[in-house]
Write a protein that binds this DNA or RNA. Structure first.
Length: 517
RNA sequence: GGCCCCAUCGUCUAGAGGCCCAGGACAUGGCCCUUUCAAGGCUAAAACGCGGGUUCGAAUCCCGCUGGGGUCACCA
C-alpha cells in the first residue's frame, strides 16, 4: 500500500508543472554570433525534449539584436548543427508559423512600440547620457566606493529637461524603472523561489540608441507574443531574471515558467566551457567547444545527444544508453539536476564507441568514407565494407579509422622502421630472414583467405619453433607498417596477395639494406 | 568585492528521513580471453565538504562555515 503523502507529493509536482493550461511551447533563441556552442546544443536539446515529450511545439528564434556581433554565416551553421543533432523545429526563420517572423531584426517596430508603451505608462524612461558621461559617472561612483553601474541620473527628469535634451538632438536609450526598495521573489520551476534585494538592481537599458532592443526587452516581448510557455535557459541568466520579471509585471502579461538549467564546466571543473581558453581533458588533449568541431571529429549525433542528455538530466533506472525516442518518452523537469557539471570527455568517447559498435557494419562502412577521403585517399565501397567490421570495435570516433586503418590506403606504402622489430627483440637481419621465410610460405598458399593464411603461418611458426606471436607480430609490422592494427590475416586478405607480398618484400629489402650500410 | 546559484566516488550520476556501513556508468588497477590493439567477461579500489541543530533515526530537513560556479554592458 502506497502512503498518501507520496501521492500528495506527486500530485503537487504534477500540479506545478500543469499550472499553466497553455499548450507547451519551448524555444531555443541563440544569437547568430558564430558557431553553436556544445552547451547551447544541450540547452536546445532540453527544450526540444520537453516540447516533444509534451506534444507541444519547439521554436527556433534568432536573437540578432547586436549589430556589432552579427556573423552572416552563423545562421546557416546554427541550423546545420541543430539539424545534424536531429532537433527539428516547428517554427523558425526558415519555417514560418502563426507567430512570425522568427528573426528579431525583422521585428524592430514591435519592440519600439512596446518600449514607447512602457515610457508612456511610467514603467520606463528615456535617458540621454552620452557614453562618455556614463563612463565618468561610473568612475566617480567607483572613487566613492559605491557599487558600479548606472546612477539613475535621468530617471526623474523634468519635462523641461527632457525637452532640452530632445531639442539638442541627443541620442537616447530607454531604461527600465526597477523597484528602488523591497524584495523580489521570483519563481523558478526548478529551484523554487529566488529572492533578490530590489535596491541592488539596475535600471537596465531596454532599447539601445540604434533603435535595437536589448535581449531583456526583446525576449519578453517575443516570448509573450509567441506564446512561449516554458523558458529553459542557462543559469547565467539568473542574475538578470529580476529585470525580466519586472518587465512581465510592467506589461501586465502572464509570464511563462522559467527554468534555469545548470551549465557545463570545463573537464577540470574550473570555469564554464568557452571558445577562448579552450578546455583540455586529463591527458592535455584539446576538447572541442563547437558543435561543428564535434561533427568534424567524427562523433555521431545519436551519441552526442545521448551524452548531452545524461549531463544534468537522468533517464532513471540506471540506464544511460538510450535513444532520443526513449528520452522523449521519459523527459521531465523533475529529473533535472540543479548543479553545474564538469564536461566528461572520456564518457563521450565511450558512448560514441558504443553507438559505433551497435551500428550495422555496412552502415559504418558508409560513414568511413568521409574521414578517409579527407586524407586524400581513395577507397572502393567493397574495401570499406570489408574494413568496417575490422575497425568497428577498435575506434571511438569515425576519424580514428585514419590511424587504425590508414595502412590500407596510404600510397606509397611506408615500411616499418627497425624500431618496430627491435621492440619484438629482432635485429634487422633476423627480421629480414624471418620475413623472407614467411614470404616464401605465403607464396605457396593457394587461396588468399584469412583462414588459409593463418593456417600457413601457424604451420611455419611451429616448423621454426616459434611462438605464434613471435612470427605474427613482425609480420604485422611488415604488412601494415604498424605495431597496432586490426587482425592480421583479415587485413592481409583485404590488402590482397600481390600487394601483401610486395609489402613483405619491400620491408625485408629495407631491413637488409640498412644492415649492409 | 556585491548579489545570486550550487555541493554524493577523480568525473557523470542514483538517492523525495529508516530500503544506504550509499547503487550505476566512465576513467583507473587486477584477472580471463587473445596474433597486436581493441571489444567482451569477471573483479578491485574509490564519495555523502565541515560544524551545529531538528528527529527515536539524516546523504536526504534547517542554520552557519567552507568550497565551487555564475553575474555585475547601449552582448546575448
Amino acid at each position: 500500500m502506497r502512503c498518501c503523502c507520496e501521492d500528495a507529493a506527486r500530485l503537487l509536482v504534477w500540479s506545478v508543472l500543469m499550472s499553466s493550461s497553455k499548450p507547451v511551447r519551448t524555444r531555443f533563441a541563440p544569437s547568430p554570433t558564430g558557431s553553436l556552442h556544445i552547451g547551447g546544443l544541450r540547452t536546445a536539446l532540453f527544450n526540444w525534449l520537453y516540447a516533444r515529450h509534451s506534444g507541444g511545439q519547439f521554436i527556433l528564434r534568432i536573437e540578432d539584436t547586436d549589430q556589432k556581433r552579427y556573423d552572416p554565416d552563423a545562421l546557416r551553421i546554427l541550423m546545420e548543427s541543430l539539424t545534424w543533432a536531429g532537433l527539428d523545429w516547428d517554427e523558425g526563420p526558415d519555417k514560418d508559423g502563426p507567430y512570425g517572423p522568427y528573426v528579431q531584426s525583422e521585428r524592430l517596430a514591435l519592440y519600439q512600440e512596446w518600449a514607447d508603451w512602457l515610457v508612456t505608462n511610467g514603467h520606463a524612461y528615456r535617458s540621454y547620457e552620452t557614453p562618455a558621461e556614463l563612463e565618468a559617472s561610473r568612475k566617480a561612483r567607483e572613487a566613492q566606493g559605491l557599487p558600479p553601474g548606472y546612477d539613475r541620473g535621468h530617471r526623474e527628469l523634468t519635462a523641461a529637461q527632457i525637452a532640452a535634451y530632445e531639442a539638442e538632438g541627443r541620442p537616447t536609450v530607454v531604461r527600465l524603472k526597477m523597484p528602488l526598495t523591497g524584495e523580489m521573489h521570483l519563481p523558478d520551476a526548478l529551484r523554487g523561489t529566488v529572492t533578490f534585494d530590489a535596491g541592488q538592481l539596475q535600471d537596465t537599458v531596454l532599447l539601445k540608441s540604434d533603435g535595437f532592443p536589448t535581449y531583456h526587452l526583446a525576449h519578453v516581448i517575443d516570448d509573450h507574443f509567441m506564446e512561449i510557455s516554458y523558458v529553459m535557459r542557462a543559469v547565467e541568466w539568473l542574475p538578470s531574471f529580476p529585470i525580466h520579471w519586472q518587465l512581465w509585471q510592467s506589461f501586465g502579461w502572464e509570464a511563462p515558467a522559467y527554468v534555469h538549467l545548470p551549465v557545463m564546466l570545463n573537464p577540470n571543473g574550473k570555469g564554464k566551457m568557452s571558445k577562448r581558453n579552450p578546455p583540455r581533458d586529463a591527458h592535455g588533449r584539446l576538447i572541442p567547444v563547437l558543435v561543428h568541431d564535434y561533427i568534424a571529429a567524427g562523433y555521431l549525433p545519436e551519441a552526442v545527444d545521448n551524452f548531452l542528455a545524461n549531463i544534468g538530466w537522468n533517464f532513471g533506472g540506471d540506464r544511460e544508453v538510450f535513444s532520443m525516442a526513449e528520452a522523449i518518452e521519459r523527459f521531465d523537469l523533475t529529473r533535472i539536476n540543479e548543479a553545474n557539471s564538469a564536461f566528461p570527455p572520456d564518457k563521450l568517447d565511450w558512448l560514441n564507441g558504443v553507438y559505433l559498435r551497435e551500428m550495422p557494419a555496412d552502415e559504418l562502412a558508409l560513414k568511413l568514407r568521409a574521414p578517409i577521403e579527407r586524407e586524400g585517399w581513395t577507397a572502393s565501397d567493397e574495401e570499406l565494407r570489408q574494413i568496417a567490421p575490422l575497425v568497428q570495435p577498435r575506434i571511438k570516433t569515425l576519424n580514428d579509422v585514419v590511424e587504425m586503418a590508414g595502412f590500407f590506403f596510404r600510397e606509397p606504402f611506408i615500411p616499418a622502421g627497425d624500431e618496430q622489430f627491435a621492440a619484438k627483440g629482432l635485429t634487422p637481419a633476423q627480421a629480414a630472414a624471418l620475413l623472407d621465410k614467411a614470404r616464401a610460405a605465403l607464396e605457396a598458399v593457394p587461396g588468399w583467405t584469412h583462414e588459409a593464411l593463418e593456417a600457413a603461418m601457424r604451420e611455419l611458426a611451429e616448423a621454426e619453433g616459434l611462438k605464434v606471436k613471435d612470427l605474427f607480430n613482425p609480420l604485422r609490422s611488415a604488412v601494415t607498417g604498424q605495431l597496432v592494427s586490426p587482425p592480421l590475416f583479415e587485413s592481409m586478405a583485404i590488402i590482397g596477395r600481390q600487394a601483401s607480398l610486395a609489402r613483405l618484400a619491400a620491408t625485408s629489402a629495407r631491413l637488409a639494406g640498412n644492415e649492409a650500410s
